[in-house]
Amino acid sequence: MSTADLIAGSAPIIDPAAFERLRARRHASPDDVATVLAARSRRPLVRDDGRLFIVAADHPARGALGVGDDPIAMADRYDLLQRLALALSRPGVDGVLGTPDIIEDLALLGALDDKIAVGSMNRGGLRGAVFEMDDRYTAYDVDAMVHDGVDAAKLLVRVNLEDAGTARTLEATANAVTAAARARLPILLEPFMSRWDDGRIVNDLTTAAVIQSVAIASGLGASSAYTWLKLPVVPEMERVMAATTLPTLLLGGDTDAAPEETFASWEAALALPGVHGLVVGRTLLYPKDGDVGRAVDIAAALVHGR
C-alpha cells in the first residue's frame, strides 16, 4: 500500500514541500529543533476521562523494521512519517512514542502540537546481536527529556535470569526511574521475563511470567510515584492487573491474529481496573487492509469510547 493510498481518496497529510523544508532545516538550521520543541503547545498527560491512546514508533531505532511478512516495511522514513501524521490527526489519538529522531521530525513538521510526546530511551541490545541482552539505554535520558519538554519516558526491561547482563539492565533502569521521579517525569516501564532459545531471545508471555515481570519492574528505583507500566495482553489479564497498583497501558505489538480478535482482546483488557489505555504501533500503522485511519479510529474508540 503506497503512501498516497493511506487516506482513502484524499491527499497525504504531509506534502512534498513540507519534507523539503524539514530536510533544509536539519541541514542548515539544527538549532530549529530546540526552538520548535520549546514553542510547541503542550497539554496535560491525561484529560477528563483519564485515558491515553499513544501511537508507538520507536521500532526503527532497534533495527526492527519488519511488519508481518515484510522485513523492511518501516524502512521508508517519509512513508512512516505520513502514517504517523495521519494517526495523530485522528480524534482520540493522544500522542506518539518515539526516539529523538522521530519526535524531532514530527515536531519540525508541526504534528506534535497539543499531543503527548513519549520519549523512548531505547535499548542497546539489538535483536539477533551477540550483545542482545546488554540493554543499556542509547537514546533519550531524563535530563534531555526535561530540557526538550518531552511529556513522558519509556524504557524496556528484559529480565533474563540466565544472563548476567540483566544485572546492568536492572541497575540502569532503577537509576532512570529514580531520575524521572526526581524530575516529576512519568516513566513507562515495559517489562518481560526473557530467555535464550536456540541463540535468540524470546519473551515469556505466560500469565505467571508477566506477573513476575510486573513485580520486579514495580520495585525499581527510589520512588514509584511517577512509574507507569506498559504490558502485553495475555490470558487471565485480570490476574496480571491484580499484581500492581501502578497505572498501566496495554502493549499492542505485531500480531498474526485477525484484527477482530486483536481488537476484542484489547477491549476486554481495557475494562480492567488500573488499565488506562493503549500504546500500539505496527498493528495500526501497517494494518493488513492498508486502512490506517480506520484501524486507528477503532482503537481510539476502544480507549476513549465512541
Rank of each mutant, 00 (worst) to 15 (best):
K115C: 12
I103S: 04
T99V: 14
L97V: 10
T138Q: 10
D105P: 02
R127Y: 11
A164P: 03
M133C: 11
G98S: 14
T138S: 04
A164K: 04
D101Q: 05
G128N: 13
M133L: 13
E132R: 04
L188P: 04
L185F: 05
A153C: 09
T178M: 02
A174Y: 07
A174G: 15
E171D: 14
M133A: 13
D148Y: 03
T166M: 02
E162W: 06
A172V: 02
G128F: 13
V177Q: 00
G95K: 02
N122T: 06
L161C: 10
A153Q: 07
G124L: 01
F131W: 13
L109D: 11
R127T: 12
L188H: 07
D135H: 03
D151K: 00
T138I: 14
A180Y: 00
A111N: 05
E171Y: 01
A176F: 03
V130L: 13
D101Y: 01
A180L: 05
A152D: 13
M193N: 00
V150L: 07
G119S: 08
K115R: 15
A129E: 14
G119E: 10
I116Q: 03
L97A: 07
I103L: 12
D143T: 08
W196Q: 14
D113W: 02
L109M: 08
L161P: 12
L188G: 04
D105N: 06
V96P: 05
A164Y: 06
K115N: 12
M121Y: 06
D114C: 02
E190L: 08
G128S: 09
V118P: 00
P100K: 03
L170W: 06
D148Q: 12
A144L: 11
D198G: 02
F192C: 06
V177G: 00
K115A: 08
G149V: 05
D114Y: 05
I103V: 15
G199N: 11
D135C: 04
G124H: 05
L156R: 06
R184P: 02
A176R: 02
D141C: 09
G128Y: 14
A117S: 14
R168H: 06
L112S: 05
E190D: 14
D105E: 07
A117N: 02
L155N: 07
N160E: 10
M133F: 14
A183N: 11
N160C: 15
A139E: 15
V150I: 15
A183Y: 09
L97R: 03
G124E: 10
A174C: 10
R158I: 07
V96D: 08
A144D: 15
M193E: 10
A164T: 09
G98F: 13
K115M: 11
L189F: 10
Y140C: 06
R184F: 09
P186D: 14
R136N: 15
D113E: 12
G128K: 09
V118R: 00
I102C: 09
F192R: 04
E104T: 01
P100L: 07
